[in-house]
C-alpha cells in the first residue's frame, strides 16, 4: 500500500507537539498515532501488569470453585473467575495494540520477568475469603480502575470500561455473600471477621506507596495514564468501606480508624509495609504456586495450540 506522500514530513518535535496537544485537550491517543517511546513502554508495562494480575487473580478464588458450598455460589464464583480470564484477555489485547505479543507477555510472567499484584500471593483460607476478596480487593481495584476508564490511551480506556462494569458485579456478590454469612452460624460470623482481619491491610496496600515515595507517578499523571494519587485513592476507598463494614457488622482491624468530623473523612493507622515487602520479595505464601499453575497450563497444553495451528494451515482456503 502506498500512502500519499506528505509535502512536509513531520519532524519529531512537531509530532511531540501534536501528541502533547492531544493529551492536553483530553483527547485519546490511538494505536497508530505517534507517541513518545516512554509513554508506550510505560503503558505496556502497566497494562501487562494489570493483565497478569487478572490472570493470577483467578487462582485465589478459583481454589474454591470445586468446593463452593451451594450451587448458586458455585455458579456465581465460576462466572466471576471466568470474567477474570476475560479481563486478562481484554487487557492483553490492549497491550497488543502497542506492539506487544500476548504469548511473549505470558512467558515474561511465567519467567518472573514481569510482575503482578502482590495481593494475589495471599492464600484463601476459608470461604469467607471469597466474599472478602469481592468486597475489599475488588472494591479497592474498582477505586483504582474507574479513573483508568479515562486513560489517555484509547484501547486501555475502552477495555477498562468493560472491566469496570463487570467488576461491580464482583464486588456486590462478595458483599452479598458476607451479609448472608453474617446472618448464619456463629462459626460463619467468626470466619468473616477473621477474613476481614487478614485482608484489610493488604487491601490498603494495594494502592501503592505513599505519594511522597512514589517517584514515577508525576510523569504518568502528566501523560494521563494515572489520574489520581495513591493516597487520594486509598482515602477514597477507606471512606467508602467503613460504612459498609458497619452495616455488615464486622470490625476493621485498625484501632486508630476514626471519623474526622471536620473533613468528613476517616483517619486510619499507619500501614506496616514490611509485611508487604516480605510477600513481594517472593516470600509470600503462594508466589511459587501461582506461577507454577500458569507454567503448567502453558507447557502441558502447548500441543493443543500447535494442533489447532497445524489444522488451520492444512485446511486454509478449503
Amino acid at each position: 500500500m502506498s500512502a500519499p506522500a506528505l509535502d512536509r514530513p513531520l519532524d519529531e518535535s512537531a509530532l511531540q507537539g501534536r501528541f502533547d496537544a492531544t493529551i492536553a485537550a483530553g483527547h485519546r491517543i490511538e494505536p497508530r498515532d505517534w507517541m513518545p517511546e516512554g509513554y508506550r513502554k510505560t503503558l505496556v508495562r502497566q497494562i501487562a501488569q494489570h493483565a497478569h494480575s487478572e490472570i493470577i487473580g483467578m487462582q485465589p478464588e478459583g481454589d474454591w470453585l470445586l468446593a463452593a458450598p451451594s450451587l448458586r455460589r458455585k455458579a456465581v464464583l465460576l462466572a466471576k473467575v471466568q470474567d477474570e480470564a476475560g479481563h486478562g484477555l481484554y487487557l492483553y489485547s490492549a497491550a497488543e495494540t502497542l506492539g506487544a505479543d500476548r504469548a511473549d507477555l505470558t512467558d515474561k510472567l511465567i519467567e518472573r520477568r514481569q510482575k503482578y499484584s502482590s495481593i494475589f500471593n495471599y492464600p484463601t483460607l476459608t470461604y469467607a475469603d471469597v466474599g472478602v476478596i469481592g468486597w475489599l480487593v475488588d472494591g479497592a481495584a474498582i477505586c483504582n480502575q474507574v479513573p483508568l476508564c479515562r486513560s489517555s490511551y484509547g484501547p486501555y480506556a475502552r477495555a477498562m470500561i468493560r472491566v469496570c462494569k463487570e467488576e461491580s458485579f464482583h464486588q456486590r456478590q462478595g458483599y452479598e455473600l458476607l451479609m448472608t454469612m453474617m446472618t448464619g452460624t456463629a462459626e460463619q460470623q467468626a470466619m468473616v471477621q477473621d477474613a476481614v482481619d487478614r485482608w484489610w491491610w493488604p487491601s490498603l496496600m494495594m494502592f501503592g506507596p505513599p505519594d511522597d515515595e512514589s517517584p514515577n507517578s508525576a510523569q504518568s499523571m502528566a501523560w494521563g495514564i494515572k489520574r489520581h494519587s495513591n493516597d487520594e485513592l486509598r482515602q477514597r476507598f477507606v471512606d467508602m468501606t467503613v460504612p459498609q463494614a458497619e452495616v455488615l457488622g464486622v470490625t476493621l482491624p485498625d484501632p486508630e480508624l476514626a471519623l474526622d468530623r471536620d473533613t468528613g473523612r476517616y483517619r486510619f493507622g499507619a500501614i506496616d509495609w514490611s509485611e508487604l515487602q516480605r510477600v513481594i520479595s517472593g516470600q509470600g505464601p503462594c508466589n511459587d504456586e501461582r506461577i507454577a499453575r500458569r507454567r503448567a497450563a502453558r507447557d502441558d497444553n502447548a500441543w493443543v495450540t500447535e494442533a489447532a495451528t497445524a489444522y488451520a494451515e492444512k485446511h486454509a482456503g478449503v
Binding site: T42, R45, Q46, I47, Q49, H50, S53, E54, G57, K115, Y116, S117, S118, I119, F120, V137, A140, A141, N144, Q145, L148, M160, V163, M205, M206, F207, G208, P209, S214, N216, S220, I225, K226, N230, L233, W273, L276, I280, S281
Partner: peptide, 11 residues
C-alpha cells in the same frame, strides 16, 4: 512498589 495497573501494589 508501584500502584499502576488496576490491582495496585505491583513490585
Amino acid at each position: 512498589l508501584t500502584a499502576e495497573g488496576g490491582h495496585g501494589a505491583v513490585p
